[in-house]
Structures are given as C-alpha cells and as structure tokens.
C-alpha cells in the first residue's frame, strides 16, 4: 500500500507552526478525524460495524463518514460480530484495510473465534504470504453508569494472543495519530478506546496534524517523578495523572507512564523510571488475575530486581464480573486507591 499516510503517520513530516493544521479536539472527535484522514489518503480503508453509517456509531465516532465516503466504504453491517470480523479478514486478504467497530467491548465475544483463529494466525500459518491489516476499534472501560456488558476491560485476553497487536489511547493527540498508525500497520491491531473519556471537554487538546507522532508501539513517560512510578493506559492514565497531581501538592513526586501499546509491551521507560524510584504501581480497570498488570510486574521484577524497594503493587478492578453500575465507583481504581497504594509502597 503506497499510501501517503505511511510517510506522514510514521513521521517524515516536519513540525509546522501553521495554526490551520491545529484543531482543538476531544478524544472522540480526534479518532473521527484520524479515520477521515486515513480514508482520504487510501481508498482501501473501509469502516464496518453496527450503526456506523447514518447514525455515526452509538458514540458518533464515525459521524459523517458514510455521508462523505459512501455506503461501500462505511458499511452498516448485519448484526453479527463474527460476521464483521470474519469478513474483515477476507476483505484484508483481498487488499482492503478494514476498520471494524465493535459497539461495546462486551459484544466482541461472538467475534472472538475469528480474531483468535484467523485474524491472529493467518500471517504465521502462511509464513507471511497473507497479511491481515485489520483494525478492530473497541470502546472499553467503565464509569458510564451502564447496564451489563457495557463497561468491561477485556484487553488482557487479546494481549495474550500471539499475532495480535493491542493498543490504547488516552488523549486526543494520541487518538488522532494512533488510529492512523494502527490502520497503517500490516498486523491486526486491537484498538481500545476509553469510552468514558470520548467526549470529556476537559481533556480537549490541540491536535497538530503536521507534527511527527510518537511511533505506535512505544510507551511514553508523561511525568517525571522520584518517589514512585505509576503506569496506566487508556482511562487509567487520567487517574494516574490526577493522583500524581494530588501527591505533588504534598511534596511527593510520582512518575507517570502511559503504556499506549499493550502488546507488544514497551517497558523500557518503565524500567528506567523504576530504577530511579524503586517503586511501581500499575493502574488498570481490568481485573488483576492473569492480566497485563501481572505481566508488567513480572518483567519489572526480572529487569529491576535490585532497584526495587517494594513489591510491585496493582490497583485494578476486582476479580469479579463487572458489578451493577451503582457499585462501579468502588470497583474502579480511583485517586484514593492509587494514593493508598503509593503510601503502602512508600511504607514498605
């Protein structure tokens, strides 16, 4: 695919001061613009999912795309996730770059078979003769007061599957670039979007469409710190930053890292930070048992064993199904639970 996106999203364009290239966007609008840009620069990019056309998706992330690109490029599919993902695989084999929307993370499981059995393995099985550059966009996470299956965090299940790449954005700038980079990636990418933050006005940020973005599979240090290191991704990045701000007011400097890429994991900045702080706390909404948090803890104790001053602590959802939403404020990691973990770590 000789698309102009490739050079742009992977960073040959220089910095520009031109204000017309800067738009202040929410995460939701940034993904929308990223999708639009990818579709404009490569006509093999197509969007498929339930209600993504006229309605623009239940979160309006594909708003306006069908109107501008037509029904052959933005498909309101029949109601079947296995169908959405299975046909995306076939479309990719044919040379398209499908972007699937799963309406809520809890509804991805009818498509799990296609993801694990075909999407993840075709490249390996054919020893590279078949590429499946499919992106699966998944709104995930809780805190929206929803009924069952609308607030879950199943990302670890996908990170566990060899052959899949898994990423999550936490801010508008990343949202804009990462969706394009994911589309540009020749491997299948699960793209987890923090649904609670989609339209949060306070997270609006200027998105400069001409800068050189961070490569997709790199994590990023957001805040330097000396006392302890916090690592989060997607919705939990905001929780980490809020905690770090609160701690700073009391003179405790916490480092914050946005993981961004969940598979492959880029833990170099985490190791570097832990070597300075000696303490690590992972923060995620997903439950802890056999999770990404467990993987991070393992690698950090392997790489930073002699630097650690305390065991790695995990602040996560509990090892239960997502509870009725009236209880989600207890279930979800919040500022208090993070700070409490920091206290525990510091007191070790």
């Amino acid at each position: 695919m000789a698309a102009p996106t490739r050079s742009t999203v992977n960073g040959s364009a220089g910095h520009s001061e031109n204000p017309s290239t800067v738009q202040t966007l929410t995460i939701g609008k940034a993904i929308n613009l990223g999708l639009r840009t990818a579709m404009e620069s490569d006509d093999k990019v197509i969007v498929l999912g339930e209600d993504v056309g006229k309605l623009g998706g239940v979160f309006r992330i594909t708003d306006g795309l069908q109107k501008d690109f037509g029904e052959q490029r933005v498909l309101d599919t029949p109601l079947a996730e296995s169908g959405i993902i299975g046909t995306a695989v076939g479309l990719a084999v044919r040379g398209f770059r499908p972007v699937c929307e799963i309406q809520f993370e809890g509804f991805i499981f009818p498509g799990f078979d296609q993801i694990v059995s075909q999407l993840a393995k075709l490249h390996y099985r054919t020893q590279g003769k078949i590429k499946v550059p499919v992106v699966i966009r998944v709104p995930f996470g809780g805190g929206i007061g929803a009924v069952e299956h609308h607030s879950e965090s199943p990302e670890s299940l996908f990170a566990h599957v060899a052959g899949l790449k898994v990423v999550s954005c936490s801010n508008p700038v990343d949202a804009y670039w990462m969706i394009q980079q994911a589309i540009d990636c020749d491997d299948p990418v699960l793209f987890f979007e923090p649904k609670k933050l989609y339209h949060m006005g306070t997270l609006k940020a200027p998105v400069d469409t001409t800068v050189t973005p961070t490569p997709l599979f790199q994590s990023r240090l957001l805040r330097e710190g000396t006392a302890a290191t916090l690592v989060g991704y997607g919705p939990s990045v905001k929780v980490c930053l809020d905690a770090a701000n609160a701690a700073a007011e009391e003179g405790t400097e916490l480092a914050v890292i946005d993981l961004r890429s969940l598979s492959p994991l880029d833990l170099t900045p985490v190791f570097e930070s832990v070597r300075r702080t000696g303490r690590l706390i992972t923060v995620s909404e997903a439950q802890s048992e056999s999770s990404l948090a467990a993987e991070i803890a393992t690698r950090v104790q392997q790489e930073c064993f002699y630097s650690l001053e305390a065991p790695v602590l995990r602040v996560t959802g509990f090892d239960t199904p997502y509870p009725p939403a009236k209880l989600e404020e207890y279930y979800l990691p919040d500022l208090d639970r993070v700070l409490h973990a920091v206290d525990r770590s510091l007191a070790w």
Partner: peptide
Amino acid sequence: PTPERIFANVYAEPSPVL
C-alpha cells in the same frame, strides 16, 4: 446495593481467594 455485592456469588462454591 452495598459494596459486598461486588464479591457475592461470583462462584457457587466457596472462593477463599475472592
């Protein structure tokens, strides 16, 4: 509901870990 509800009845059998 009270916070105990989060942990109740995940399993039919006793779950000391939970």
